[in-house]
């Protein structure tokens, strides 16, 4: 036992490295191990569940983009170019699947671990802190989001749905979207107490998906409703992804990016605060 000790850092030495650093009481700087844990658990999970996250946007693309799209013809994008209907909705579906994946991982999965698995109680009895847990769980959601985004791009590109090279940036764009939704999702979940409240999340998500300029431009709505939708996160996500895949890039993009940076910071702040209140009170 002591032989092993001599060559390896002890848990105490590892924990003491954070001494004096800002946030040492809630952040050990080791959120990566939470991702490692998620990966260990993931190896045993059902591949059907994993595949569904990838297949869903592809089905929407086939049904609406090519099915319905053959009746519609083309749409005019923000700068007046005509694009096929499939190319118009493809980036919106990419943004939506990034959102859905992130929300699923950060709401249902987190809710279960919080209330039934006792996982966070266990983790917080070690030298990890609440921000490690929040970052690790969200990081895992992002990895999944990234994989789905790459998969979807691989399908879209040969179909000619990504006319611009800027489209490559739609992948990190999807990760940013997933980060924003996962942070806020986990933050909200940490305040929810039962399944009824969890259902409210879905109640909010579906209409946001349908009406955020996913399938048609906002210009068909009255002005007041346009303002409402423009305040919602999915609208920003779709605008950002669409601008990138269609190559209509402008300074306005930074506004969308900023929107998500604020979501990330706010979500992490409330998640960390709430986990401390729940498990370290």
């Amino acid at each position: 036992m002591s032989l092993i000790n001599a060559t390896v850092d002890s848990a105490i030495a590892i924990a003491e490295r954070r001494r004096g650093k800002i946030g040492a009481e809630f952040y050990a700087g080791r959120g990566l191990v939470i991702i490692e844990r998620a990966f260990l658990a993931f190896k045993t999970s059902s591949w059907a569940v994993v595949a569904s996250g990838f297949v869903e946007p592809v089905f929407y693309l086939l049904a609406f983009g090519f099915g319905l799209g053959s009746l519609i013809g083309g749409v005019t994008d923000g700068s007046g170019h005509a694009v096929s209907y499939a190319a118009y909705i493809a980036p919106a579906l990419l943004a939506t699947s990034a959102m859905n994946g992130a929300i699923y991982d950060s709401t249902w999965n987190v809710f279960f671990k919080m209330h039934f698995g006792r996982l966070y109680q266990t983790i917080l009895a070690t030298s990890l802190g609440t921000l490690d847990v929040a970052l690790g769980e969200i990081g895992w959601a992002l990895l999944r989001g990234l994989t789905y985004a790459i998969g979807f791009m691989i399908v879209m590109t040969p179909l000619g749905l990504i006319p611009s090279w800027w489209g490559i940036l739609a992948i990190p764009g999807a990760v940013l979207i997933a980060f924003g939704f996962a942070s806020v999702g986990m933050g909200i979940t940490s305040y929810l107490k039962n399944f009824q409240q969890m259902d409210m999340v879905n109640f909010f998500m579906l209409p946001m998906f349908l009406f955020s300029g996913t399938f048609y431009p906002l210009s068909i709505y009255p002005q007041w409703l346009q303002y409402v939708i423009e305040s919602l996160p999915l609208w920003h996500a779709i605008q950002m992804e669409r601008a990138l895949t269609l190559g209509v890039v402008g300074w306005g993009l930074l506004g969308h990016v900023l929107y998500f940076v604020v979501m990330i910071a706010g979500g992490l702040f409330f998640t960390t605060k709430r986990l401390s209140a729940l498990f370290l009170r």
Partner: peptide, 19 residues
């Protein structure tokens, strides 16, 4: 020094909480 102290401790909670 929460995380630091927890590194010194082994905890066996009342309810088994395995992954």
């Amino acid at each position: 020094f929460g995380p630091e102290i927890r590194a010194h401790l082994g905890v066996v909670p009342q309810q088994d909480s395995h992954d």
